[in-house]
């Protein structure tokens, strides 16, 4: 009886260890996917920051060009004699 109980306990421990390993595998899969998701989010943040930086630079350049154009047009409208044929 004691011998059979020992075998049953060993089988139960084996089953428990296997279940534990299965749980660990599942957790590793979940953590791996979460890490991939995190990496994707980091990459997305970098690309979005880069795009926003280039967009900001373009908007700054456009703003300067428009300011220059505005100054030129204002100067020309202040001196209409330049445009009288």
């Amino acid at each position: 009886m004691a011998r059979a109980g020992g075998i049953t306990n060993a089988v139960n421990v084996g089953i428990a260890v296997q279940a534990d390993w299965e749980n660990r595998e599942f957790i590793s899969h979940i953590s791996l996917n979460v890490r991939r998701l995190f990496e994707f989010l980091v990459q997305f943040e970098a690309t979005t920051k880069s795009k926003l930086a280039s967009l900001n630079e373009k908007l700054d350049t456009l703003e300067r060009r428009l300011e220059l154009l505005e100054v030129q047009v204002g100067t020309a409208s202040a001196n209409p004699s330049l445009f009288s044929t």
């Binding site: 997305f44 979005t48 795009k51 926003l52 280039s54 967009l55 373009k58 908007l59 350049t61 456009l62 060009r65 428009l66 154009l69």
Partner: peptide
């Protein structure tokens, strides 16, 4: 977010082109 950013970049490029034409 990517689509919105690309759309804004295209708009800015078009605006750059128009400003270049005006210049």
């Amino acid at each position: 977010v990517n689509d919105l950013l690309d759309e804004k970049v295209d708009e800015v490029s078009g605006t750059e082109l128009r400003v270049s034409c005006i210049e």
